[in-house]
Structure formats: structure tokens, C-alpha cells
Design a protein around this nucleic acid. Sequence first.
DNA 1: CAGGGAATCAAACGATCGTTTGAGCATACG
DNA 2: CGTATGCTCAAACGATCGTTTGATTCCCTG
Lengths: 204, 204
Amino acid sequence: MNSSASTKERILTAAELLFAQRGFDGASLRQLTAAAGVNLAAVNYHFGSKDKLVEEVFRRRLDTLNAHRLAALSKVAGQPGTTLETVLDAFIRPALALSSDGSGSLFMRVLARAFAEHDDHLRQFLSENYGHVMRQFTAEFARLLPGLSREELYWRIDLVTGALTHAMSGFGMIQRKGDVSEATHREQTIAHLIRFAVAGLSHP
Amino acid sequence: MNSSASTKERILTAAELLFAQRGFDGASLRQLTAAAGVNLAAVNYHFGSKDKLVEEVFRRRLDTLNAHRLAALSKVAGQPGTTLETVLDAFIRPALALSSDGSGSLFMRVLARAFAEHDDHLRQFLSENYGHVMRQFTAEFARLLPGLSREELYWRIDLVTGALTHAMSGFGMIQRKGDVSEATHREQTIAHLIRFAVAGLSHP
DNA sequence: CAGGGAATCAAACGATCGTTTGAGCATACG
DNA sequence: CGTATGCTCAAACGATCGTTTGATTCCCTG
């Protein structure tokens, strides 16, 4: 573990890794603090409790990830030339950039876990703090797909979200062919996901 | 809890509910046996260990679910009039029938959990025992989509699987409009999922 | 009716969990 | 220099975990 970073940062990085590997319950504070090279009591000292640590793991990544998403969305939302592709790009690209980062490459896996676990407390935390992001994207999808009923739109967004979350949680796991660069691979993946999402959202 | 069923059956039913609600680690054998109305030691007596119980929870549902899927697939696979829709129907309909059963309505949620948790032991168990099912469906998809490369096909199947797993894990949660019957609602959902999957698999 | 294997039971096992404690250390400020 | 303040540390807390034990009850069969 990086011994130059601060204790809080080392704990967050080790927690992200272990939460991705073993889940929130499965990763103990003793494994976690040992991997981070800090004392066991450091978690409760710096974060208050294990639950607060979990929230902070999400906050560290989602604050900037969703800020990037909204920044990209604001550049295209409501504009005349905007298409489904450009809106989906605003949603997908920041997530895959984070996954390619090396630093945050495991976070999408953690997010997929929280997505599958129907834990009420965690869902409420995510909804309260980041629900407005999905709401803004949904509004733009509704504008670009005027033929769909509200119910039909929610259905399709739910399905697309499930597919993207699942796919992005595995990004970085699959070995890419040696003759393409990381950037090229990412662009191809983004194109894949966008085409799939467009087909799922806009089929007749 | 149903006190007329056998102890093993009562344990499996209570385990399915609690695994869906709290996860495999989160549900303790004490909560589980209390909910089932059986003694704490009954789990280790009848199943050997908690891990074996988890496997049995999957086996009880997946044996019949996948048998139904393969039976439906064998009726259409390779036939001249077969389309993507009929193959997807063979895959989706048995799962939603199980979800509508009342008895097994929570199992798809458990399956979605196992899907998100990248637990090696559980994945190996599922792959060894039920991997041939997805292999047969994949072969039929490949036959119906000759224009796609193997890599492209795997990509799309992975995305569709993620979407369907996510959607079916929430089936039964959403309140349906009061004027449609359970059967009608299920048919509409199947139609929804099939159309989405067809669009995701076959877009140009 | 008697005997015996299957099933259930309360109780306890050692291990591990998240959390708390209080002493010890460092660094900065008067 | 003395002393606050922020942080780290080993150790222990009570609770809960999965599992095991040995006695007891149940039920079928001869």
C-alpha cells in the first residue's frame, strides 16, 4: 500500500479494493486496515464507523464522476443538434474514464454491488445525494424520445442502466488485444455501449 | 413460516427470503432458523454447512428453471421458422413464471446478487452445474445472428444478460395497475423484455 | 410392545466482528 | 521550554458468527 498518502486516503483506497472483492459485509476492518498499513482504530477515528466509511468510499468517486457527467450533459442538453448518442456519451464516458484511471478502476464494481444489494440505507444515501443526476438525464431522454410514455421510458432506462452497470463493473477485467492502446480500447467500448443503449432506448 | 412443510424445505424457503433481503453473509443462521421455526443446529445437520445450504438454494430453483429453458429451446432451436423472439421467449418465460409463482418470487433477486458478487466459489459452482444452458442459447444466437463476430456476439449477450438479470430481480416489486391480471402483466413484461433484448442483440 | 435410527433440542465452543479505551507519540505554538 | 492538539498504537470490550456436542424426543419396524 502507498505509504506516502495520508491515512484517510490509504484507508479509502484499501476499502475500495476490498469492498469490490469481498463486499461490504465480507471485508472486515482488520483485513482493511492491515492492507492499508494503518492501525485498526484509525477507521473509527477518521470516519466514525464502518458505515460512514462506506459512504465516504462512494462520495470520493461519485462527487467528481457525477460532476463530470452533468458538465458534459449541460453542454448538449436542449441544444438543437443533440442526439441520444451525445447524451449517452455524457453519461458513459466519465465512468469509463474512471475505470481506466487505475486509481479508481475498481469503483464501478463496488457500485454494481450496491446496485444489486437492495440495501435500504445505502439506496437512500445514493438517492438523496446523487438522484438528481439520473433525473436530469431522464428528462433529456424524455425530450429526445417524445413517442414513449413515461412508463415505457422508465422501463427502458432501467434496463439500459442494468446493462451498463453490469458491463462497466467488468471493464478492465477483460484482456484487450495487445495491438490496441488503452485509449483505443476505451473508445471502442464507449462506442459499443452507446450503440447498445441507443438500440435499447429507441427501438419502435 | 409454513409449519406443514419438512424441515429442509422450511429452511430453504426462509434462506431464499433472507438471502434476497440481506445477502449471503448478511443473513445469519440464527435469523434464518428462527424465521423457519427450526432449531439452529438443523442447518448443519441437514446441509452440512452454510455454504452447502447456499448451493442447495440455487439447486432447488435452477434445476427446474434451466430444465424448462432447455425444453423450450429444444422445441425451436434449429427449426426453419425460429426467430430471435422465440429463442428469447424460451429463456425469459420460465424465469418470469418462477418469479410470479409466489413460492419462488424472490429467487431471481438472489440470483442477481450472485451475479453481482464476483465470488469465485459461487461462480464456479454455477458455471459447472449450469454453464451448458447459456452455452446452448449462445450457440442458437450465433446461428440466428450470422453477421456478428464471436467477440461482438459475446459483448451483446453479456449486456442483455445484465439487463435481464437486473430487470427480473425487480419483477414483482413494482405495483401493477389494478385492472390487469397477473397473467396479463407477465405477458406484457415478457413482451417488453423480448423487444428490448432483440433490439440490443440485432441492431446493425 | 420393545428397540433403534433419525431428527430435534439447549447449550456451549472458539473465532471473528465493529467499536472503545487510555496511554504514548508527534508536531506546532505561546 | 512547556504544553496543548492531533494522531497512532496495543489491548480489550461485548456481541455475534458458524459449528459441534451430547442428551432427548420422535417414529417406524420387527
